[in-house]
Amino acid sequence: MNNSPEKQLLTVSPSPHMHSARTTAFVMLDVIIALLPLLIWACYVFGMRALTVTVVSVASCVLFELLYTLLLHKPISVGDLSAVVTGILLAYNLPVNIPLWMPVLGSFFAIVIVKMLFGGIGKNLVNPALAGRAFLMASFAAAMTVPAGIPALAKLGLFENVSNTEILTGATPLASVLIRDQYAGTYRTVLDMFIGNEAGVIGEVSALLILMGFVYLLARKVITWHIPVAFLGTVALLTFLLPGSGFERFDLVYTLSHLCSGGLMLGAVFMATDYVTCPITSKGRLIFGAGCGILTVIIRYFAGTEGVSYAILAMNLLVYYIDKITVPRPYGISKKKTTEKKLKEGAK
Protein backbone atom coordinates (compact mmCIF):
# COMPACT_ATOMS: atom_id res chain seq x y z
CA MET A 1 0.00 0.00 0.00
CA ASN A 2 2.98 2.30 -0.44
CA ASN A 3 2.34 5.06 -2.83
CA SER A 4 5.94 5.10 -3.99
CA PRO A 5 6.19 6.36 -7.54
CA GLU A 6 8.24 3.41 -8.82
CA LYS A 7 5.52 0.97 -7.90
CA GLN A 8 3.83 -0.42 -10.95
CA LEU A 9 0.15 0.31 -11.06
CA LEU A 10 -2.23 -2.19 -12.57
CA THR A 11 -4.70 -1.67 -15.37
CA VAL A 12 -8.17 -0.86 -14.17
CA SER A 13 -11.29 -1.14 -16.25
CA PRO A 14 -14.99 -1.18 -15.48
CA SER A 15 -16.72 -4.51 -14.90
CA PRO A 16 -17.53 -6.94 -16.48
CA HIS A 17 -13.99 -8.19 -16.99
CA MET A 18 -15.13 -11.13 -19.06
CA HIS A 19 -16.73 -11.32 -22.48
CA SER A 20 -18.40 -13.89 -24.59
CA ALA A 21 -16.24 -15.07 -27.48
CA ARG A 22 -19.11 -14.39 -29.89
CA THR A 23 -18.22 -11.33 -31.91
CA THR A 24 -20.08 -9.96 -34.91
CA ALA A 25 -17.77 -11.89 -37.26
CA PHE A 26 -18.50 -15.14 -35.40
CA VAL A 27 -22.22 -14.58 -35.69
CA MET A 28 -21.92 -13.89 -39.42
CA LEU A 29 -19.77 -16.98 -39.85
CA ASP A 30 -22.55 -19.06 -38.30
CA VAL A 31 -25.04 -17.59 -40.77
CA ILE A 32 -22.69 -18.41 -43.65
CA ILE A 33 -22.37 -21.99 -42.42
CA ALA A 34 -26.14 -22.30 -42.26
CA LEU A 35 -26.42 -20.96 -45.83
CA LEU A 36 -23.79 -23.18 -47.47
CA PRO A 37 -25.83 -26.42 -47.86
CA LEU A 38 -28.27 -24.44 -50.01
CA LEU A 39 -25.48 -23.57 -52.41
CA ILE A 40 -24.43 -27.20 -52.69
CA TRP A 41 -28.02 -28.19 -53.42
CA ALA A 42 -28.33 -25.42 -56.01
CA CYS A 43 -25.19 -26.66 -57.76
CA TYR A 44 -26.75 -30.11 -57.88
CA VAL A 45 -30.11 -28.94 -59.23
CA PHE A 46 -29.08 -26.06 -61.46
CA GLY A 47 -25.48 -26.88 -62.27
CA MET A 48 -22.20 -25.26 -61.29
CA ARG A 49 -23.26 -21.88 -62.61
CA ALA A 50 -25.03 -21.32 -59.28
CA LEU A 51 -21.59 -21.24 -57.70
CA THR A 52 -20.35 -18.70 -60.24
CA VAL A 53 -23.26 -16.36 -59.58
CA THR A 54 -22.74 -16.62 -55.81
CA VAL A 55 -18.99 -16.04 -56.00
CA VAL A 56 -19.43 -13.01 -58.26
CA SER A 57 -22.05 -11.57 -55.94
CA VAL A 58 -20.01 -12.14 -52.75
CA ALA A 59 -16.81 -10.83 -54.28
CA SER A 60 -18.45 -7.68 -55.57
CA CYS A 61 -20.18 -7.03 -52.22
CA VAL A 62 -16.90 -7.34 -50.33
CA LEU A 63 -15.06 -5.29 -52.93
CA PHE A 64 -17.61 -2.46 -52.93
CA GLU A 65 -17.54 -2.24 -49.14
CA LEU A 66 -13.74 -2.27 -49.11
CA LEU A 67 -13.50 0.39 -51.82
CA TYR A 68 -16.06 2.56 -50.06
CA THR A 69 -14.19 2.48 -46.75
CA LEU A 70 -10.83 3.03 -48.45
CA LEU A 71 -12.00 5.93 -50.60
CA LEU A 72 -13.78 7.70 -47.77
CA HIS A 73 -11.08 6.92 -45.17
CA LYS A 74 -13.48 5.05 -42.90
CA PRO A 75 -12.40 2.18 -40.66
CA ILE A 76 -12.23 -0.98 -42.74
CA SER A 77 -15.23 -3.10 -41.88
CA VAL A 78 -15.19 -6.06 -44.26
CA GLY A 79 -13.68 -8.20 -41.49
CA ASP A 80 -17.08 -8.55 -39.86
CA LEU A 81 -18.20 -10.76 -42.77
CA SER A 82 -21.56 -9.03 -43.07
CA ALA A 83 -20.82 -8.13 -46.69
CA VAL A 84 -20.25 -11.83 -47.40
CA VAL A 85 -23.68 -12.67 -45.96
CA THR A 86 -25.26 -9.91 -48.05
CA GLY A 87 -23.52 -11.25 -51.16
CA ILE A 88 -24.70 -14.80 -50.58
CA LEU A 89 -28.27 -13.74 -49.86
CA LEU A 90 -28.37 -11.54 -52.96
CA ALA A 91 -27.12 -14.39 -55.14
CA TYR A 92 -29.68 -16.75 -53.59
CA ASN A 93 -32.40 -14.41 -54.82
CA LEU A 94 -31.30 -14.51 -58.44
CA PRO A 95 -32.16 -17.04 -61.15
CA VAL A 96 -29.22 -19.18 -62.15
CA ASN A 97 -29.15 -18.00 -65.76
CA ILE A 98 -28.82 -14.30 -64.94
CA PRO A 99 -26.14 -12.35 -66.86
CA LEU A 100 -23.13 -12.02 -64.55
CA TRP A 101 -22.99 -8.22 -64.58
CA MET A 102 -26.35 -8.08 -62.84
CA PRO A 103 -25.23 -9.45 -59.47
CA VAL A 104 -22.43 -6.88 -59.60
CA LEU A 105 -24.93 -4.09 -60.13
CA GLY A 106 -27.19 -5.50 -57.43
CA SER A 107 -24.25 -5.68 -55.04
CA PHE A 108 -23.42 -2.06 -55.74
CA PHE A 109 -26.97 -1.02 -54.91
CA ALA A 110 -27.13 -3.24 -51.82
CA ILE A 111 -23.77 -2.35 -50.31
CA VAL A 112 -23.11 1.23 -51.36
CA ILE A 113 -26.58 2.75 -51.59
CA VAL A 114 -28.54 0.79 -49.01
CA LYS A 115 -25.88 -0.06 -46.45
CA MET A 116 -22.81 2.19 -46.53
CA LEU A 117 -24.51 5.48 -47.37
CA PHE A 118 -26.76 5.00 -44.36
CA GLY A 119 -23.74 4.57 -42.07
CA GLY A 120 -22.55 1.01 -42.53
CA ILE A 121 -23.35 -2.10 -40.54
CA GLY A 122 -26.14 -1.65 -38.04
CA LYS A 123 -27.45 1.57 -39.54
CA ASN A 124 -29.24 0.49 -42.71
CA LEU A 125 -33.02 0.74 -42.69
CA VAL A 126 -33.82 -2.17 -44.99
CA ASN A 127 -32.18 -5.49 -45.72
CA PRO A 128 -29.45 -4.74 -48.31
CA ALA A 129 -29.74 -8.05 -50.16
CA LEU A 130 -33.50 -7.72 -50.51
CA ALA A 131 -33.19 -4.11 -51.60
CA GLY A 132 -30.64 -5.20 -54.20
CA ARG A 133 -33.02 -7.86 -55.46
CA ALA A 134 -35.93 -5.41 -55.58
CA PHE A 135 -33.76 -2.97 -57.53
CA LEU A 136 -32.82 -5.62 -60.11
CA MET A 137 -36.42 -6.83 -60.29
CA ALA A 138 -37.67 -3.32 -60.98
CA SER A 139 -35.00 -2.67 -63.60
CA PHE A 140 -34.68 -6.01 -65.39
CA ALA A 141 -37.90 -7.89 -64.79
CA ALA A 142 -37.40 -10.19 -67.75
CA ALA A 143 -33.94 -11.38 -66.73
CA MET A 144 -35.08 -11.81 -63.14
CA THR A 145 -38.00 -14.04 -64.04
CA VAL A 146 -37.49 -17.62 -63.08
CA PRO A 147 -37.82 -19.96 -66.04
CA ALA A 148 -39.79 -23.00 -65.01
CA GLY A 149 -37.90 -25.35 -67.25
CA ILE A 150 -34.51 -24.78 -65.69
CA PRO A 151 -33.97 -27.77 -63.46
CA ALA A 152 -35.20 -30.22 -66.05
CA LEU A 153 -33.32 -28.64 -68.89
CA ALA A 154 -29.92 -27.49 -67.99
CA LYS A 155 -27.26 -28.44 -65.60
CA LEU A 156 -25.30 -25.35 -66.44
CA GLY A 157 -21.51 -25.52 -66.30
CA LEU A 158 -19.42 -22.94 -64.48
CA PHE A 159 -19.56 -20.35 -67.29
CA GLU A 160 -22.30 -21.79 -69.43
CA ASN A 161 -25.47 -19.83 -69.86
CA VAL A 162 -28.80 -20.04 -71.55
CA SER A 163 -31.24 -17.22 -72.11
CA ASN A 164 -34.84 -17.28 -70.96
CA THR A 165 -36.14 -17.39 -74.50
CA GLU A 166 -34.38 -20.64 -75.18
CA ILE A 167 -36.14 -22.34 -72.29
CA LEU A 168 -39.67 -23.57 -72.53
CA THR A 169 -41.75 -21.29 -70.42
CA GLY A 170 -44.27 -22.70 -68.09
CA ALA A 171 -45.64 -22.13 -64.64
CA THR A 172 -43.20 -22.21 -61.74
CA PRO A 173 -44.45 -24.10 -58.70
CA LEU A 174 -45.33 -20.81 -57.04
CA ALA A 175 -47.31 -19.60 -60.05
CA SER A 176 -49.22 -22.85 -60.09
CA VAL A 177 -50.16 -22.31 -56.48
CA LEU A 178 -51.37 -18.82 -57.23
CA ILE A 179 -53.44 -19.51 -60.35
CA ARG A 180 -56.50 -21.67 -60.00
CA ASP A 181 -56.38 -23.09 -63.53
CA GLN A 182 -52.87 -24.43 -63.18
CA TYR A 183 -53.17 -25.65 -59.62
CA ALA A 184 -52.70 -29.37 -59.30
CA GLY A 185 -51.40 -29.71 -55.82
CA THR A 186 -50.88 -33.20 -54.49
CA TYR A 187 -48.76 -34.46 -51.64
CA ARG A 188 -46.33 -35.62 -54.31
CA THR A 189 -45.74 -32.13 -55.72
CA VAL A 190 -45.52 -30.73 -52.19
CA LEU A 191 -42.85 -33.27 -51.34
CA ASP A 192 -40.89 -32.27 -54.45
CA MET A 193 -41.12 -28.64 -53.39
CA PHE A 194 -40.10 -29.49 -49.84
CA ILE A 195 -37.00 -31.34 -50.93
CA GLY A 196 -36.21 -28.73 -53.56
CA ASN A 197 -36.77 -30.50 -56.82
CA GLU A 198 -38.38 -27.51 -58.49
CA ALA A 199 -37.70 -24.33 -60.40
CA GLY A 200 -36.83 -21.20 -58.52
CA VAL A 201 -34.04 -18.78 -57.70
CA ILE A 202 -30.73 -20.20 -56.55
CA GLY A 203 -31.27 -20.40 -52.81
CA GLU A 204 -35.00 -20.79 -52.34
CA VAL A 205 -35.78 -24.21 -53.72
CA SER A 206 -35.09 -26.60 -50.85
CA ALA A 207 -37.36 -25.95 -47.89
CA LEU A 208 -35.78 -28.89 -46.11
CA LEU A 209 -32.26 -27.47 -46.20
CA ILE A 210 -33.51 -24.04 -45.16
CA LEU A 211 -35.24 -25.56 -42.16
CA MET A 212 -32.03 -27.40 -41.28
CA GLY A 213 -30.24 -24.04 -41.40
CA PHE A 214 -32.95 -22.67 -39.12
CA VAL A 215 -32.35 -25.43 -36.59
CA TYR A 216 -28.61 -24.80 -36.76
CA LEU A 217 -29.04 -21.07 -36.16
CA LEU A 218 -31.40 -21.78 -33.25
CA ALA A 219 -29.00 -24.27 -31.70
CA ARG A 220 -26.16 -21.77 -32.01
CA LYS A 221 -28.44 -19.12 -30.53
CA VAL A 222 -27.79 -16.83 -33.49
CA ILE A 223 -31.47 -16.10 -34.05
CA THR A 224 -34.56 -16.59 -31.93
CA TRP A 225 -37.58 -18.60 -33.08
CA HIS A 226 -39.96 -15.66 -33.01
CA ILE A 227 -39.76 -14.23 -36.54
CA PRO A 228 -39.71 -17.45 -38.61
CA VAL A 229 -42.45 -19.06 -36.52
CA ALA A 230 -44.66 -15.97 -36.58
CA PHE A 231 -44.04 -15.45 -40.29
CA LEU A 232 -44.64 -19.04 -41.43
CA GLY A 233 -47.43 -19.51 -38.90
CA THR A 234 -49.33 -16.48 -40.16
CA VAL A 235 -49.00 -17.57 -43.78
CA ALA A 236 -50.10 -21.11 -42.88
CA LEU A 237 -53.09 -19.85 -40.91
CA LEU A 238 -54.24 -17.40 -43.56
CA THR A 239 -53.88 -19.82 -46.47
CA PHE A 240 -55.68 -22.54 -44.49
CA LEU A 241 -58.60 -20.40 -43.33
CA LEU A 242 -58.86 -17.81 -46.10
CA PRO A 243 -57.47 -19.27 -49.33
CA GLY A 244 -57.17 -17.17 -52.49
CA SER A 245 -60.25 -16.79 -54.65
CA GLY A 246 -61.21 -20.00 -56.37
CA PHE A 247 -59.47 -22.31 -53.92
CA GLU A 248 -61.10 -24.43 -51.29
CA ARG A 249 -60.93 -23.76 -47.61
CA PHE A 250 -59.16 -26.06 -45.13
CA ASP A 251 -57.01 -27.63 -47.83
CA LEU A 252 -53.82 -28.77 -46.19
CA VAL A 253 -52.06 -29.46 -49.49
CA TYR A 254 -52.79 -25.92 -50.61
CA THR A 255 -51.36 -24.52 -47.38
CA LEU A 256 -48.24 -26.67 -47.64
CA SER A 257 -47.75 -25.65 -51.28
CA HIS A 258 -47.83 -22.03 -50.17
CA LEU A 259 -45.29 -22.69 -47.41
CA CYS A 260 -42.84 -24.61 -49.56
CA SER A 261 -43.02 -22.60 -52.75
CA GLY A 262 -41.31 -19.40 -53.71
CA GLY A 263 -39.00 -17.51 -51.38
CA LEU A 264 -41.10 -17.88 -48.26
CA MET A 265 -38.83 -20.22 -46.32
CA LEU A 266 -35.64 -18.42 -47.34
CA GLY A 267 -37.21 -15.09 -46.47
CA ALA A 268 -38.61 -16.19 -43.13
CA VAL A 269 -35.44 -17.87 -41.90
CA PHE A 270 -32.62 -15.84 -43.40
CA MET A 271 -33.98 -12.48 -44.57
CA ALA A 272 -36.56 -11.40 -42.03
CA THR A 273 -34.27 -12.43 -39.17
CA ASP A 274 -31.52 -10.05 -40.29
CA TYR A 275 -30.56 -8.45 -36.96
CA VAL A 276 -30.16 -4.92 -38.25
CA THR A 277 -33.57 -4.67 -39.83
CA CYS A 278 -35.75 -6.55 -37.37
CA PRO A 279 -37.08 -5.43 -33.97
CA ILE A 280 -34.93 -6.09 -30.90
CA THR A 281 -37.58 -7.28 -28.48
CA SER A 282 -39.19 -10.72 -28.70
CA LYS A 283 -42.69 -9.25 -28.69
CA GLY A 284 -41.69 -6.89 -31.49
CA ARG A 285 -40.30 -9.82 -33.45
CA LEU A 286 -43.60 -11.64 -33.22
CA ILE A 287 -45.43 -8.58 -34.53
CA PHE A 288 -42.84 -8.17 -37.27
CA GLY A 289 -43.13 -11.82 -38.33
CA ALA A 290 -46.91 -11.73 -38.35
CA GLY A 291 -46.87 -8.49 -40.37
CA CYS A 292 -44.53 -10.06 -42.93
CA GLY A 293 -46.86 -13.05 -43.17
CA ILE A 294 -49.98 -10.96 -43.73
CA LEU A 295 -48.34 -8.78 -46.38
CA THR A 296 -46.91 -11.81 -48.17
CA VAL A 297 -50.32 -13.44 -48.43
CA ILE A 298 -51.99 -10.23 -49.55
CA ILE A 299 -49.42 -9.71 -52.30
CA ARG A 300 -49.61 -13.35 -53.37
CA TYR A 301 -53.42 -13.30 -53.54
CA PHE A 302 -54.04 -9.94 -55.10
CA ALA A 303 -50.94 -9.30 -57.20
CA GLY A 304 -50.52 -12.90 -58.26
CA THR A 305 -46.79 -12.73 -57.74
CA GLU A 306 -44.22 -13.53 -55.05
CA GLY A 307 -44.54 -11.05 -52.18
CA VAL A 308 -42.05 -12.23 -49.58
CA SER A 309 -39.30 -9.76 -50.35
CA TYR A 310 -41.63 -6.77 -50.61
CA ALA A 311 -43.40 -7.80 -47.42
CA ILE A 312 -40.10 -7.93 -45.55
CA LEU A 313 -38.92 -4.63 -47.03
CA ALA A 314 -42.16 -2.95 -46.00
CA MET A 315 -41.96 -4.32 -42.48
CA ASN A 316 -38.29 -3.27 -42.26
CA LEU A 317 -39.44 0.31 -42.54
CA LEU A 318 -41.80 -0.13 -39.59
CA VAL A 319 -39.19 -1.57 -37.23
CA TYR A 320 -38.50 1.75 -35.53
CA TYR A 321 -42.14 2.06 -34.51
CA ILE A 322 -42.50 -1.60 -33.55
CA ASP A 323 -39.50 -1.17 -31.25
CA LYS A 324 -41.11 1.89 -29.78
CA ILE A 325 -44.34 0.20 -28.80
CA THR A 326 -42.82 -3.04 -27.55
CA VAL A 327 -40.47 -1.78 -24.86
CA PRO A 328 -40.68 -4.56 -22.25
CA ARG A 329 -41.96 -3.90 -18.75
CA PRO A 330 -38.88 -3.82 -16.54
CA TYR A 331 -38.58 -6.07 -13.51
CA GLY A 332 -40.09 -4.48 -10.43
CA ILE A 333 -42.03 -1.78 -12.27
CA SER A 334 -45.74 -2.41 -12.32
CA LYS A 335 -47.80 -2.06 -15.46
CA LYS A 336 -50.03 0.46 -13.75
CA LYS A 337 -47.08 2.68 -13.05
CA THR A 338 -45.86 2.60 -16.65
CA THR A 339 -49.27 3.46 -18.06
CA GLU A 340 -49.62 6.27 -15.55
CA LYS A 341 -46.26 7.55 -16.67
CA LYS A 342 -47.34 7.40 -20.30
CA LEU A 343 -50.56 9.24 -19.52
CA LYS A 344 -48.62 11.92 -17.74
CA GLU A 345 -46.29 12.28 -20.70
CA GLY A 346 -49.30 12.49 -22.97
CA ALA A 347 -50.75 15.25 -20.83
CA LYS A 348 -47.54 17.17 -21.14
Binding site: G119, Y275, C278
Partner: peptide, 8 residues
Protein backbone atom coordinates in the same frame (compact mmCIF):
# COMPACT_ATOMS: atom_id res chain seq x y z
CA UNK B 1 -15.50 -2.16 -30.69
CA UNK B 2 -17.79 -2.07 -33.68
CA UNK B 3 -21.31 -0.82 -34.29
CA UNK B 4 -24.41 -2.21 -32.68
CA UNK B 5 -25.97 -4.74 -35.05
CA UNK B 6 -29.24 -4.78 -33.10
CA UNK B 7 -28.94 -8.48 -32.39
CA UNK B 8 -31.19 -8.07 -29.36
Amino acid sequence: QSSCIRCG
